[in-house]
């Protein structure tokens, strides 16, 4: 099989390389190009943020990495390279239900969601669920699994873990369920944590606690994090690098400071301006007119063209601009910044 190769020099510092991935849903109405050109890489112990409005393809990107894209979705092209110490695996080449990806999920890559009940089962106690995950991936010793479970629960800030292990998810508050889900995801020491809007439904006070927790655990466990959100404030808070997505494509990609202080793509620029910023009151917000379209049989053009005030006729609506490195480690997909 071709999915495993030797790890190259340059990949040593990189954990995950996502290269021009396209994931489409073949529907009766047409082809929905949920992810249509996504590239980024995540370094070891680095936090990459994906920011984009709803429908931009953030979750499907995460599902593609985990190989849990629901039917009728399929990865059509691209590479998702997971670099182990001694070899590299292209996740797109693995069988979706095969043993390899199953062992990678949970052990190498774990995921947390906005809705904790996506990963927690309502009919098993918190303790049971975490213990089972540990027994599956980490140790066969039940005593040790029990000890790790209690340790994880207290590390994520759940008070009285000895009692909590015997409770069911519905007995916990929203914030506590979120913590239990994180405990389960991290119980097997994953190399990469994918967090898909884990704090979107929470109050700011609880969000602040959870973000702090993820940062702490990242240091303790030396993990990389892929953090998905539509909240620029959360990005500013936790990320080293940012990929801005619009309509299935990464339109800008760079360090968090480049994205906030030197944004280049018109969408990034406008998104930053449309957000009310506490402590910087403006008279009027600069909204982006129009709506995010649905990428169903999308025309071959820049995805932002209908809402872009700088669109160039005869140019932006006839071809898709390429994602080009316009400055060191700063990539943009826009004809204002490259000929390609």
């Amino acid at each position: 099989m071709v999915q495993t190769r030797e790890t190259t020099e340059e990949a040593v510092k990189t954990l995950l390389d996502v290269r021009d991935v396209r994931t489409y849903f073949h529907l009766d109405e047409g082809v929905l190009k949920a992810v249509d050109g996504v590239s980024f890489d995540i370094g070891k112990q680095e936090t990459l943020g994906i920011i984009g409005e709803s429908g931009s393809g953030k979750s499907v990107t995460a599902q593609s990495i985990m190989r849990i894209v629901p039917k009728p979705g399929r990865i059509r092209s691209g590479e998702i390279l997971l670099h182990h110490d001694d070899r590299t695996t292209d996740l797109t080449q693995l069988k979706p239900f095969g043993p390899e990806i199953r062992s990678i999920r949970g052990k190498d890559i774990a995921m947390i969601f906005q809705e904790p009940m996506t990963s927690l089962s309502p009919v098993h106690t918190i303790g049971n669920q975490i213990r089972e995950a540990i027994l599956l991936h980490r140790t066969e010793d039940r005593k040790e699994a029990e000890a790790i479970t209690l340790d994880m629960l207290s590390r994520v800030g759940i008070s009285n873990p000895k009692q909590r292990v015997n409770e069911y998810p519905h007995q916990l508050s929203g914030g506590m369920r979120q913590r239990a889900m994180i405990a389960m995801a991290l119980s097997c020491n994953p190399k990469l944590l994918i967090a898909d809007e884990p704090t979107t439904a929470l109050d700011v006070t609880v969000q602040a606690q959870i973000l702090e927790l993820i940062k702490e655990l990242q240091e303790q466990f030396h993990m990389s994090v892929l953090y998905i959100t539509h909240d620029l404030g959360v990005i500013a808070e936790v990320c080293d690098k940012v990929a801005v997505m619009y309509l299935g494509r990464v339109v800008e990609y760079g360090s968090v400071r480049d994205i906030f202080y030197h944004p280049l793509h018109p969408y990034t620029v406008r998104l930053l301006k449309s957000m009310p910023k506490m402590g910087h009151k403006q008279d009027r917000l600069e909204a982006i007119e129009g709506n995010v379209p649905i990428p169903l049989d999308p025309p071959v053009q820049c995805g932002f063209v209908e809402r872009c005030t700088e669109a160039m006729a005869g140019r932006c609506e006839v071809a898709v601009p390429a994602l080009v490195e316009v400055d060191k480690q700063h990539w943009v997909r826009c004809y204002l910044h490259s000929e390609e």
Binding site: T205, Q207, A208, E212, A236, E237, M278
Partner: peptide
């Protein structure tokens, strides 16, 4: 505490968090 919990608006800003106990 509520004000301090709001995420910062840009990466270089520093924010002093008052972490509230419990819920």
């Amino acid at each position: 505490a509520l004000l301090s919990a709001v995420p910062k608006t840009e990466p270089d800003e520093e924010r002093e968090r008052i972490v509230l106990k419990g819920e």
